[in-house]
Amino acid sequence: MVLTIAIPLRSYYGLEDLVTLRHLDNCGKLMLVTGLIVDYGYMCEIFLSWYSKDEFEWFMTRNRIFGPYWMVFWSVMLCNVVATQFLWSRRIRRSPVALFLLSLVINTGMWVERYMIVVTSLTRDFMPSAWGQYAGTIWDYAVFIGTLGFFVMMMFLFVRLLPAISISEVRTLLPQAEVKEEAEEVVS
């Protein structure tokens, strides 16, 4: 998410010298690490629902993978498992465009994952009488778009009114900011 915002901001305001490729590279690594932790979570969950030999656990897993919402599950796999693996490549981590596209894909994946958790769990309760199907209505989408709008508005206000990059912290990085050892000698 940070990258989704940071990369257009960087190019729009010409911050390439402050937010360098090295920073993007590091963000990419961070994204890879968190992505792998998420993948690890999927692995444990699926394996253990098989291992447990628990009817309900195993049904839930199969329902997610092959049930009516199979497309949701496989989109999650595509966005959060497959797409994150591209970040192993240094070339991709150092390409702002590729990184931006990947961050969009992963954001979508995270949203779809929430959808999977909430919807597949609620549509298949322990009691079959409570089973049902869910599809978003216009109000669901309105709320979704509205929250995105509010977020973007707040963020633009922030960028507009406050320094997007901490001035005093950036100044510390200047070579002039280094206190030389002569300070010791001047005194003695």
Partner: peptide
């Protein structure tokens, strides 16, 4: 005009 000088100056003033 540089950080080194101010550190040295502060030290002198304290002394």
């Amino acid at each position: 005009d540089n950080p080194t000088a101010i550190v040295a100056a502060t030290r002198r003033a304290y002394a």
